[in-house]
Each structure stands twice: as structure tokens, then as C-alpha cells.
Design a protein around this nucleic acid. Structure first.
Length: 821
DNA sequence: GAAGTGGATATACC
DNA sequence: ACTGGTATATCCACTTC
């Protein structure tokens, strides 16, 4: 018997003699890699219809016990059954707990339970690992005291411990959770490859870089055997791949991380290993990485958690970022203040001997960035994993809805609730066809420049509405009854039970924890507390969307529609209250309200806030977002009324807060964005338009004199689908086509860059796309286009607030029809 | 062939 | 297909006269 302190990093399972066993990989306190082998009860639920007599139940139990699945590799059967009182979607039910011998047959066994006394069958569609974690409570990234039997080249479990390359392989006897404050730091290796081709496996891999703690290497068979402290020379590609395997085994990481490595680096290495007849046996049991089929490839390595940083950043982390793209360069600059090294890609055959060193450095830097980004993001991954309780591998790739759902699944036990099934097939189609419901309320602003503005906003508005009014699948009632909450959605009236449902109650816990950790963080700022608080915030914000998402187990469109309806009702009520106190409300969007403070003191505003809060129901809460010196709202470009979702504010410390304007839109050229930003700044700082107009005149003159650098005029637009799929051929699609013709790689999701050039033959009116050119294409920028289609639209509505006649500013251009009514 | 309109598309706000 | 709805603005595609 051996006792160890252990932290689980990754989970896997295997079959031995028809039974399932879990393999859990992790580390001990001393830093040794360990594999645990354990098993757990596997069961599914059959929910009985109400009021089934005991003798009838006994009959069914007998039949259930006889169920057998005879497949080629195993015979699966029902081991035993138990009757339990459980909850299911707001109802108390009697349910049969059916223990089965092999997890893989859960679905098939469920399909055989078709007796008319059985209402529903559940929990046959959870992953084995989820079931294991739920059952044995050996949660990822928590510390445990494990007691077990050392398997030392034993024949137990078919000798599985022989092939696993860990110091210890332990058959678990006892698990005890340990309170542990120290933050676990995994042994991490960042990696990146360089190739001539972008298509997976098409050309040879030129080099592979690896970066860990005090560890950096570039493995290569190129570059004339350049000597350097980090370059490791190999004789050819095959030799280098063997070297890659050896280096990984020797470093023995917990985590292998790259940027877009699911979609490129890992499958590429695998493909090249295959071409060279090499087994890429980097798995801890000498297995090769496996790749999931489907639209998004994911690469899994046994015993090493492969993290594709790009996936996690895109689905979860991007909301905390300002970067205009999620390229490694942009993300690293923002999070680390560090960039990729400069290297202009060219085919390896065209690289001069002395240039290789730069290429190696470039390759190394990408791995350095991956390694550092991982370290930066680790607190978030760690906390999210501990809170949601799914393996790290899944947490780093799961969508928002999956994160919410997994949180629910792992926190249902205290509600004695049977887990609802996933929708499939027809059900999903039906849900997707449902009519959309009315969403948020947005108040039409009156255009103008305003002084002394106060901004209120509701804290986690939709979340607090769900909790306050108990809106969920299990509390939804089809019919009107006594004591139900009535909500109007469109012309329909719908009802919700007042007795608390598990979903709103769970969300209430989440909101409470978010508050608690946010407070703790402000008192003691550190990355872990920030990540913890952010994780709960994430769940809070996603809960509303989850209930309206067609793929959700706990989908209830009425609950989502009611959340929006009640949010509208209460923000409108609050606006009225503020107006009744004599304030002019300028603007409101979903959960925020802007109004003119006038001569009223900040204390008076705080008192108003307190008054409002006293009358708000449940956990709903209005907060002060801030006071602003000035703000500007403009008209729509089409029409004469105020534009929603477009405004700019300046606070008392002269910080700008700009929403919706071209300044914050990446598909406008830099010149237009910078000019607009400057004009907004000058107007908001000075309270009038004089300096702004001076500035604008300068810019216009520069454009006319062709003094603007091309860089400032480049327009960037994302290619969101493949070129052939476009029905409307816009400039960026035209350019993407041209790039392809010129052998410039064009990827889905890429930002296409172009500028608008002066047409060569002036007599014909050309479409914009006909004037679009790639940045490196020769041409002169089209003065008229940049004045009329970029600068003017970005400032016109702002200056309109001051009744400025822009025609005069643009004199000489007769076609500029601004005020032609 | 110009003018007007609606659709397609991209991006932002909350 | 991988949370929801609301909104602005551009450019193209098409219709109409």
C-alpha cells in the first residue's frame, strides 16, 4: 500500500475483461508523474411514470435485469437495480437506478428500456470521464491524498502499467481531498513548426522549436549546421522528428502548448511522421496523438495535455482583449507586450545561408510566445477547470454553452436532480425553427452635445432577472395556475413557478461567488482571484444565452424570452422613475441609463440610486457606472433621428469612452478612425467644434495634396467564408481572389487588406471593388473616395450637431452633396 | 444608363 | 453548430423607368 499526494491533470479510460477503468494522469507533491487506475459504478436512470404499483415495478425490474448486450468484444449486462426518490425538472419522481457492466453500452441498454411504465431514460449520454468525476469526486486540478496498491509490472489489468512511462502506477483504494493553497504550476512545453507549405503534411517540416522553463531549442536539418546554443542539428526531416520525440520524452511535460496547434502544428507533425514511417509515440503509453474528426480538429496526446491557446483565447479569453485580430502577434503584444520577430516568409529553396539564423530565431520566438502566453492564461484555465470540474483538455476547448452546461452537471447533486439529456436530430431542428423573441430595449437618443452626464447600469441584469423571477426549464409551466409568475412575451402570456428551481438557485450562487471574489480581489489583487472572479462572471453572463441556445440540455426559449421581457419592463420603469425626479434621460441600452445630472450634486445622484434600489425586486441591483463631463450623440446617416449604439463620453479625468463610432470599427481605414477620434476628443474636451474644424481642414488638405501614407489608407475586412460562397462580391472578396491568383495564402477568417486607387480611365463610373488594390499593388490613392467615403462619413454626423456646413470645408469638389434636400 | 431599393455583409453594443 | 437579440453602415445586385 502506498500513499501519495496527487493532482489530476488528465483522464482516460480503458476496458479490461469487459469492465471500464479510468486512467488518471497527474503529478505528486514531489513532482513525479503518476498514473492512477480506478473504476466506478456505471449506471443510468429510468424514470417511472407517476403512481406505478409496486408489483408492476417489480415486474419491470425483473425484465430490466435480464437485459444483455452481446457484442463482438464483450457481453454487457445489468448488474443490479435500485429504486430512488429523485427530482427531475421540478417534479418529484421515482426512478430506477440501473447499474451496468460497461459504459459503452449505456445508450444501447437505455434503448431497450421501452416499457410503458417508464416515462424517461436519462444519464446515458454523459462521457465516461464526466461520470467518473461525478461518482468518485476526483476533480481535476485539486489536490488529493491517494492510497493505493503499486502495480509493478503486474499482470493486473492486462499489464497496462508496463507500457505507461510513469514512475508509479497506482490502483486506487482511497481518495481524500486535501485543502491546499499553493498554486500548481504545470511543467509546460511550448512548440511551433515552420514549413514551406500550409496544407497539412504537404511539404517537409524545416524546423521545430521547443520552449520550457530554462529550456529552448530549435530542432532542424536546415541551415548548413549552424552552431548556436539552442540549435540542434539533424541529418534530415525524419531524424529531426525522432529528435522531437526524444526531446519530449526527456522533458516529460504536463502540458504541450502551441498557437493554432490543433489545426496546424500537431497534425502536421503527425502527417510528416507518417510519411517518414515514424511512430510519433509521444504519448505516455507510447501511443500516437489522436485527432478527432469533424469540422474542428482537436489533437489529443495520452498523458500530456495538449492545449491550443488559440482555441481557448477565441472562445473564452477574447472578451477580455482589445486586439483587433486574434493573431499570435496581436494577442502577445497585448498580453505580454512582446511581438513575433520579423521574418518575411519565402520558400526554403530561396533562403540564403546567412538568413537561416533569423528564421530559427523567428521560429523560437513563436514558441517563447506560446510558452509565455500559457503562463499568463494559466490562472484562468486553472480556476475555470476547478470551478466547472471537467478535464483541462475540455475546458480549454469547450464553447461557452458547454461550460455553462458542465457547471450545471457537476453541481446538480445537492438538488438530487437527474441530469436532462442532450437534444439530438429532429429536436434540434425544431428548436432552431422556433420564432425569435423580442430582446433588449434601446432608447432612441436625441442627437446633441450634453454636459454633466450620469450613467447607471444594472449589475448582471439578465442573470439577476433569471434569479429574481425564477425563470428556467424546470420552473416553466404550460398552463395558468394559482400562484404563478405571469410574464408577457409578445402577445402570449407565460407562467413560472415561484418555488425555486435549481437553475436560478445555482445562478444565484454563481452571482454571490462572483461578488465575493471580486471583493476579495480588490482587497488583495492577484491573478488567481481575478481569474476566479472572472470565471463566475463568465458563467453569469452566459446563463441567459444558454437557456435560449438550441443545443442546450436545459433549453427553454420561454425562459429566455421572459428574461428579456422582464429586463425591458424594469429598465423602462427605472427610466420613468429617473424622469419623474426631473432628470432628462438621454440614452439607454439593455441595462444602462444615461441622464443629465444638471446642477445636482453627486450625493443627490447617489440618493436617487438608493431610492431606486429599494424598490427593485429580488436581487436586481442598479449601480453607478460613472459621471461624465460631456457626451455626444449623433443622428443616423440615413434619417434625421438619433443613432443607437453610437456615442462618445469624456469623464472627469479626460478619459474617452467611445462606443459604436467608426473609431472603434476595424473595417475603416486608420486615417478615418484617427481623424474621427481626434475630432471627438477636441469637441468633448473643449465643448465646441472650433479646434475640431481646424484639425479636419488640415487632414482634408493633406489628402488632397497626396501627403497621406498608404498605411493610413488601408482598409481591412475579414473574409468570413470561402470566396465561392459569396453572393455579393464586395471589395475584400475581389482582393481575396486576386491574392489567390498571386499565390498569396488566403485563409478563412483572415483580414483582407486593400486600398482604393484612382481609376485609370476616368470617364466610366466604377464600382468600389473595381478600384480596390492590394497594398503592394502600384497605384495612387483615390482622393475622392477617401474624402467622400471615409473621412466625410466619419465626421459628418458629429459636426452636424454644431450645424457645420461641410461643403465649404471640402470646397473644390462639386459632387459633395451633403445638404442637398 | 441613372436612380432607387432591398439584400448581403461586416462589425459593434450589451 | 457550438450562448442571445439589437443596431448601424457600406456596397452590391436587382428592378424600374
Amino acid at each position: 500500500m502506498k500513499k501519495i499526494e496527487f493532482i489530476p491533470l488528465d483522464y482516460d479510460y480503458f476496458d479490461f475483461q469487459g469492465k471500464n477503468y479510468t486512467k488518471i494522469f497527474g503529478r505528486t507533491k514531489q513532482g513525479e508523474k503518476v498514473c492512477l487506475i480506478d473504476s466506478c459504478d456505471i449506471y443510468i436512470w429510468a424514470i417511472l411514470k407517476p403512481n406505478i404499483k409496486q408489483n408492476k415495478i417489480n415486474e419491470i425490474l425483473k425484465k430490466i435485469k435480464k437485459i444483455k448486450i452481446d457484442s463482438k468484444t464483450r457481453i454487457s449486462q445489468v448488474i443490479k437495480t435500485e429504486i430512488h426518490d429523485k427530482n427531475f425538472l421540478g417534479k418529484k419522481v421515482k426512478a430506477i437506478k440501473i447499474f451496468i457492466s460497461n459504459y459503452k453500452d449505456a445508450h444501447e441498454i437505455a434503448d431497450k428500456i421501452t416499457f410503458k411504465e417508464i416515462d424517461k431514460r436519462r444519464e446515458y449520454d454523459l462521457s465516461y470521464t464526466t461520470k467518473y468525476i461525478l461518482e468518485k469526486k476526483l476533480k481535476p486540478l485539486n489536490w488529493y491524498k491517494i492510497e493505493g496498491e503499486v502495480l509493478n509490472n503486474s499482470l493486473k489489468f492486462g499489464g497496462i502499467d508496463n507500457i505507461i512511462e510513469t514512475k508509479i502506477c497506482l490502483k486506487v483504494n482511497n481518495i481524500k481531498q486535501k485543502q491546499e493553497q499553493t498554486i500548481f504550476k504545470p511543467k509546460t512545453l511550448g512548440f511551433d513548426i515552420e514549413t514551406d507549405e500550409l496544407e497539412i503534411g504537404k511539404g517537409k517540416i524545416l524546423m521545430i522549436s521547443l520552449v520550457g522553463e530554462n529550456y529552448k531549442k530549435v530542432l532542424t536539418w536546415k541551415g548548413e549546421k549552424l552552431k548556436n546554443d539552442y540549435i540542434e542539428n539533424y541529418k534530415d526531416e525524419a531524424d529531426m522528428i525522432e529528435g522531437f520525440i526524444k526531446n519530449i520524452k526527456k522533458y516529460n511535460p504536463d502540458i504541450l502548448t502551441g498557437y493554432f496547434s490543433d489545426g496546424f502544428d500537431l497534425p502536421y507533425i503527425k502527417a510528416r511522421a507518417e510519411k517518414n514511417n515514424i511512430r510519433l509515440n509521444i504519448g505516455i503509453d507510447n501511443s500516437q496523438p489522436t485527432f478527432s474528426r469533424g469540422k474542428l480538429i482537436t489533437g489529443k496526446i495520452k498523458g500530456i495535455v495538449h492545449i491550443d491557446l488559440f482555441r481557448f483565447i477565441r472562445t473564452i479569453y477574447s472578451q477580455y482583449l482589445q486586439s483587433e485580430t486574434l493573431s499570435l502577434n496581436d494577442v502577445a503584444s497585448e498580453l505580454l507586450g512582446e511581438k513575433k520577430t520579423i521574418w518575411t516568409h519565402k520558400h526554403s529553396s530561396k533562403i540564403k545561408p546567412k538568413e537561416w539564423k533569423n528564421y530559427f530565431e523567428y521560429n523560437l520566438q513563436d514558441s517563447i510566445l506560446a510558452f509565455k502566453l500559457f503562463e499568463k492564461i494559466w490562472p484562468d484555465l486553472l480556476e475555470l477547470t476547478k470551478i466547472i470540474q471537467e478535464p483541462l483538455f475540455n475546458i480549454s476547448r469547450d464553447s461557452m454553452s458547454a461550460q455553462v452546461e458542465n457547471y450545471i452537471i457537476h453541481h446538480l447533486e445537492k438538488y438530487n436532480e437527474i441530469i436532462e439529456k442532450k437534444p439530438f436530430g429532429e429536436e434540434i431542428g425544431k428548436r432552431r425553427d422556433e420564432e425569435r423573441y423580442e430582446g433588449a430595449f434601446v432608447l432612441q437618443p436625441k442627437p446633441g452635445l450634453y454636459n454633466n452626464i450620469a450613467f447607471f447600469d444594472f449589475t448582471s441584469m439578465y442573470g439577476s432577472v433569471i434569479v429574481t423571477f425564477n425563470l428556467s426549464k424546470s420552473t416553466y409551466r404550460e398552463e395558468k395556475e394559482k400562484n404563478l409568475t405571469e410574464v408577457e412575451i409578445g402577445k402570449r402570456k407565460i407562467y413560472f413557478n415561484k418555488e425555486k428551481g435549481f437553475f436560478p438557485e445555482m445562478l444565484n450562487e454563481i452571482i454571490k461567488k462572483r461578488k465575493e471574489y471580486k471583493k476579495e480581489y480588490t482587497e488583495n489583487p492577484n491573478p488567481i482571484l481575478k481569474a476566479r472572479s472572472n470565471a463566475f462572471k463568465l458563467l453569469t453572463n452566459a446563463a441567459y444565452g444558454y437557456q435560449g441556445f438550441f443545443g442546450a440540455r436545459y433549453y427553454q426559449l420561454e425562459a429566455a424570452a421572459a428574461s428579456a421581457s422582464l429586463a425591458r419592463k424594469w429598465i423602462k420603469k427605472t427610466i420613468e422613475q429617473i424622469q419623474k425626479k426631473g432628470f432628462e434621460v438621454i440614452y439607454s441600452d439593455t441595462d444602462s441609463i444615461a441622464f443629465i445630472r444638471q446642477e445636482k450634486s453627486k450625493e443627490e445622484i447617489q440618493r436617487l440610486l438608493k431610492d431606486i434600489n429599494e424598490k427593485l425586486p429580488g436581487i436586481m441591483e442598479l449601480d453607478l457606472e460613472g459621471f461624465f463631463k460631456r457626451g455626444i450623440w449623433v443622428t443616423k446617416r440615413t434619417g434625421t433621428f438619433g443613432a443607437k449604439k453610437k456615442y462618445a463620453l469624456i469623464d472627469e479625468k479626460d478619459n474617452l469612452k467611445i462606443r459604436g463610432f467608426e473609431t472603434v470599427r476595424r473595417d475603416w481605414c486608420n486615417l478615418a478612425r484617427k481623424t474621427q477620434n481626434k475630432i471627438l476628443e477636441l469637441i468633448l474636451k473643449n465643448g465646441d467644434e472650433k479646434k475640431a474644424i481646424e484639425y479636419l481642414k488640415e487632414v482634408i488638405n493633406k489628402i488632397k495634396k497626396r501627403e497621406i501614407e498608404l498605411n493610413e489608407l488601408i482598409i481591412k475586412t475579414q473574409l468570413k467564408k470561402s470566396i465561392e460562397d459569396y453572393k455579393s462580391i464586395n471589395p475584400h472578396v475581389t482582393i481575396a481572389k486576386r491574392m489567390k491568383e498571386n499565390n498569396i495564402p488566403v485563409n478563412l477568417g483572415m483580414l483582407i487588406e486593400y486600398y482604393i486607387a484612382k481609376p485609370e480611365n476616368n470617364h466610366k463610373k466604377l464600382l468600389v471593388r473595381e478600384k480596390a488594390k492590394m497594398p503592394n499593388e502600384k497605384g495612387e490613392y483615390d482622393i475622392e473616395y477617401y474624402l467622400k467615403n471615409q473621412i466625410l462619413p466619419s465626421v459628418e454626423n458629429i459636426l452636424e450637431v454644431f450645424n457645420v456646413n461641410l461643403e465649404e470645408l471640402l470646397e473644390g469638389k462639386k459632387q459633395m452633396s451633403l445638404n442637398d434636400f
